[in-house]
Amino acid sequence: MIQVRNLHHCYPDGTKSLNGASLRIKENEFVALIGRNGSGKTTLLLHLNGILEPKRGSVVVGGLELKKKNLGEIRNKVGIVFQNPDDMLFSATVFEDAAFGPRNQGLSEKETDERVKSALNRVGVFHLKDKNPHHLSLGQKKRVSIAAVLSMEPSVIVFDEPTSHLDPRGRKEIMELICSLNCTKIIATHELELLKYCNSVHVIDGGRIVHSGSGVGNEILKKYEII
């Protein structure tokens, strides 16, 4: 489904954030990407739907190479749920926020309406549809930001730190919600307890994938100073 080959990235201030990262993700897999702060997790995720373009190396999603002409199609396939819901929710109502993506996809108002309703129902926040996102609790905002991506019906959803700042109960609920979604899922996290939900784990360090497998042992975690 997703193939990342020898990806390099350097921020304008000279910081090298990716240094030859390579990664393969199969369809319907639930993948965890773990690494320390500043190891390149978010930069890698931002490449997956073309927010950042590969300077060196390549990203292929569902057979399409990440290039300017494919951007629209790739963004339809890959949705990103950002770490801070306040970055995603900017409309006056929850409904409008969930409708932002489908409208950009060029869907009619009727289709948008259906998509938004089903997405809001799916994450259990339909009753909040007329509320201002600012009035919601963090857990509710996280749900709405997931609905905002679900309404675009992507085949891959990328979650950047999906459980940050949530209480244990909220963490469990969000993870169960994510597990129940029927698509390829990628989460970037440094919370090791989330690994039990995933069927594949990739460890990133210094901008490279240093371990891939169905699990990860303490030795590796220690070696890369994650614990």
Partner: peptide, 19 residues
């Protein structure tokens, strides 16, 4: 910085400047 992140999140959901 937040405005930059919001803009990225909009792009990620298919926003284009002419839209």
């Amino acid at each position: 910085e937040q405005s930059e992140r919001v803009y990225l999140a909009m792009l990620a959901r298919g926003y284009n400047d002419s839209g």
